[in-house]
Nucleic acid binder design. Structure first.
Lengths: 330, 330
DNA sequence: CTGAAAGCGCTTACAG
DNA sequence: CTGAAAGCGCTTACAG
């Protein structure tokens, strides 16, 4: 390359990086670049400058709409700053998450946004040792010094329950996801407290725990619930669980919302598609992604700033599945 | 690191790569590794061995369930072979796709799976010049020498139309996506030909083109269609367009499937969630991803094998939205 | 089995 | 402004 252009490799590097060079040299270099379709080797560059220009996003399940939403936000943000985004799906396996955290020490990405479903002691211990820029989406112990963005699950549950309470519901059931996960546990706690504060029926028969945040597990859980009781309303731990519940209700000829109102969480695109449309509490997935990306980009420039904690506020979208008294469909 | 262990850097490298070494040396190296949390630098390694152990997947829209499905399949396959997957979203912008193809020449990934929505002359020209392993999901001119996996859109449209024909439908409308895209164009052609072969009403008023493969654009297109005529059935260019049509039909108090049957394409998770559930033709997104990943992995080892072309066959999933005579719901 | 040395392809002070 | 040279951190023939 340098030979073809008839200049030194240093000059090639300078021209390609926009550093000062005479027009003559620029001309020669550009001509040779075109001729050869030359592209500087990314590794050699990274090895020298100690930056990869890559950022990583690690997530339990790329198929979950919530994470897709986050990924979009992160992609937009990082791309705008000239970084490529590497998406890694750990499938919820703790070991894969730990392996990923380790392998990033090899430097192939300049930073990581991590959104774990389960936060156990091993993960927390590992997070303390990470030597690269890291932001965690989700709840981590306050003494782990990483940037952290959280959803306000408790606030979200409260919005949902208050809304149902206003609709006259008093026996409100909760089809939650697994309670050994971060969101599952947070939502369970919030449900208990808020139900008590609102003076709702505290019956233990009103709570079921699905094996996963999926339609299939949601159906099973909803059937368990409805076999033992018929509540005024059901709150789903996420939209999929709420939708599964709606399906089971329909199969049992219970009208939504007149017999049983239903509210989901996450406010995914699915919520607008079901019939009746699903009332849902958005937990700001897009916003969480955006904020996380910004924190990471900011930390790349300011390695020593204090770790920040940002909480994104929930928002309730009321649709047909919870408007008692209205027609369920037009 | 080597100093701490008291051995040469060569020995460190050998131990870490599982090459022959005495137990004494292994012991020293492992001890030092643990103490330092040492990780070999990924770039230095890649620079030397000329491999990144990364593969890239480029896609128009990470949010589209079809691509998520592909991504999952590709992730599973590549991860099993020890590669990381880099996901890049080009947002359907041609320039971004070209820029990506260029930048990969820098070597930061060992190969690429590309799934473009639009294939124009510039892209085809660029594809011919690519110097790294590449597989394209979608249709490319036969003389472009890349591995290629395709959906059988024509076969899929045929399955859908034959099914509707059997249900007694003769005036079948088509709510297609943009016809300057690869899938849009293929589906339009297939629709015309199959409609003719089956002796369906060829009325031009039965075809509308949505601005994009989305719910919002689908609604507009469906309204345009239903303002001018009421067909026996509607085929959607994808599930989102079909679902949007179902919503508009419901708003106009047309019963599905008794007044108007509806069939989608892609057979995404959404199809099982709507009410009535949506009959849809799956075009094998998961399978296309899996095959593409395998072709790419295979090519990494066999740079000189002939480019292959694989077509994945469609499959019809009949659900409630098209079973005339049955109850639309239980 | 092990170490010294070359070299992967860049960038960047350092001279000129 | 430009070139020669050092060096980023590995791997891998080459000797021993």
């Amino acid at each position: 390359m340098a030979e073809l252009a008839g200049v030194s490799v240093a000059s090639v590097s300078r021209v390609l990086n926009g550093l000062p060079a005479s027009d003559a040299v620029k001309e020669k270099v550009n001509r040779a670049v075109d001729e050869l379709g030359y592209r500087p080797n990314a590794f050699a560059r990274s090895l020298k400058v100690r930056r990869s220009q890559q950022l990583a996003f690690a997530v339990a399940d790329v198929g979950n709409p919530v994470y897709v939403e986050m990924m979009r936000a992160i992609e937009d943000e990082t791309r705008a700053h000239g970084y490529r985004l590497l998406v890694s799906s750990t499938g919820g396996r703790s070991d894969d998450t730990l392996a990923l955290l380790d392998s990033l020490e090899g430097g192939y990405a300049d930073g990581l946004v991590l959104s774990p479903v389960r936060v156990d002691a091993r993960l927390v211990a590992r997070l303390r040792q990470v030597t690269y820029p890291l932001v965690v989406i989700g709840t981590v112990p306050t003494d782990v010094a990483v940037d952290n963005v959280r959803a306000n699950s408790a606030g979200g549950v409260r919005l949902a329950l208050e809304h149902l309470h206003e609709q006259g519901c008093r026996r409100i059931a909760f089809v939650n996801g697994p309670e050994d996960t971060v969101p599952g546990e947070a939502r369970r706690q919030a449900f208990e407290r808020t139900a008590q504060a609102l003076g709702l029926d505290p019956g233990a028969d009103l709570r079921v725990e699905a094996g996963d945040f999926t339609l299939a597990e949601g159906r099973k859980a909803a059937e368990t619930l409805l076999d033992r009781t018929t509540p005024d309303a059901v709150l789903g731990g996420n939209d999929l669980l709420a939708i599964a519940t709606m399906q089971v209700l329909a199969e049992r000829d219970l009208r939504i919302p007149d017999d049983v109102a239903v509210v989901g969480m996450d406010d995914t695109e699915l919520a607008g598609v079901t019939s009746p449309s699903l009332t849902s509490v958005g937990l700001g997935a897009h916003e969480r992604g955006r904020v996380a990306a910004r924190l990471l980009l900011d930390r790349l420039d300011h390695a020593d700033r204090e770790p920040q904690r940002v909480t994104v506020q929930p928002q309730l979208s009321v649709r047909d599945s919870s408007r008692k008294g209205d027609a369920a469909r037009r």
